[in-house]
Design a protein around this nucleic acid. Sequence first.
DNA 1: TTGCGCGTTTTGTGATCACGAATTCCGAAT
DNA 2: ATTCGGAATTCGTGATCACAAAACGCGCAA
Lengths: 216, 216
Amino acid sequence: MARKPNISNVTSAAHDQVYRRLRSRIMHGDILPGQALTLRGIGQEYGVSMTPAREAVRRLVAEGALSLSSSGRVSTPELSAERIEELAALRALIEVELASRALPRAHIALIERLQAINGEVAEAVAHRDAVRYIRTNLEFHRTLYLRAQAPAMLAMTETVWLQMGPTMRSLYGRLRRTEPPQYHRHIIAALRAGDEPGLRLAVRSDVTQGLRMLAR
Amino acid sequence: MARKPNISNVTSAAHDQVYRRLRSRIMHGDILPGQALTLRGIGQEYGVSMTPAREAVRRLVAEGALSLSSSGRVSTPELSAERIEELAALRALIEVELASRALPRAHIALIERLQAINGEVAEAVAHRDAVRYIRTNLEFHRTLYLRAQAPAMLAMTETVWLQMGPTMRSLYGRLRRTEPPQYHRHIIAALRAGDEPGLRLAVRSDVTQGLRMLAR
DNA sequence: TTGCGCGTTTTGTGATCACGAATTCCGAAT
DNA sequence: ATTCGGAATTCGTGATCACAAAACGCGCAA
């Protein structure tokens, strides 16, 4: 079969579907760091041949979501402490800018939506559900940053999230905290008040907060 | 032929060579914005089949160096003014940080090397050689940032350079200036003086300078 | 001159195969 | 029990092919 039937014209290419599903799993921490993957395995898992699997993997490697050994084997990356510090610094730099750009456009409906999402984050923390925590936490940030109307910056930020995905899972997995994230409330308060310096500080604090868990 | 002879063990995969050569051409502005490419054409140009060409293209698309039409056709991107502003803002954010991290490690040998490279930049400007200007200018920045020991940040910056490559060429191509870049001298002076605020300002000015040409 | 069909060509996509290299596995020797 | 070596297996790579869809060209009609 050279091409799928494609009766519905909203379907997309097979390699793109494989890419998106793998990307989602990696970003949300479904896959542990150092986990090895094979092209044939991925193809079999998604019901395609090696070719689309290879293209999806190539794309994810380019984004830093997967790492390539010298012999071409792929696995989720095991980040060093220095690499984690760098990625956190990048998050701080870019996300503070995104939040700042979103601030003038943040009307009340957005703030209420953020509050609702934050409720889900708190629930995930209470249940110690690491995967759900990561997903809702990223949704909180993405919802805010979408208002910045800065697609290139948002894409770059998501690339950083993607790189940290597996590591965040194993980090938050051993987290025993049950209190909701305090800085999210600071972010919401600063948005309400139109307080730009406060917003920048709150976002920076929230983003670099996870770094402290590593330094233990 | 399934694999190349590979007598010398320092050779790398064909798709990687295609990727690197294409990436270099794009980053340095060898290809104009909107230029269409075909997989068979690329393969023929580099003496390989479609498969390695496809992988190289997939990788470059993931990095934003090439854009993909809805029908799968690839071409160098034509950036909107808003996109250019975003990319310049990203450069400002990340490169200022990289310069700041490089400052404590910048000894005299590095500064002299930067001065030498800056001489080449001035020469390229004097000869109105856009491609050479872009190449030497990026070499100036990369030489400084390598000292920051921050590979993730440097990679992200190079991704931004890559995205701007074709556009920078067509921008600098119609540049009629013959004076060397002033802010490079400011950067060097701040490095000598160990003046971090001055360095940050100089880098930010240098990076956002090109933006003004667009606003004409 | 300007649109509009329609057949031709070009192009991306996915499957499959051969090949070589890397990895794994298992038994024998110490 | 542990280590070492070679056979068996697994795996990535690149070439090739068939197919469908998109782009192109060209002639005809308004």
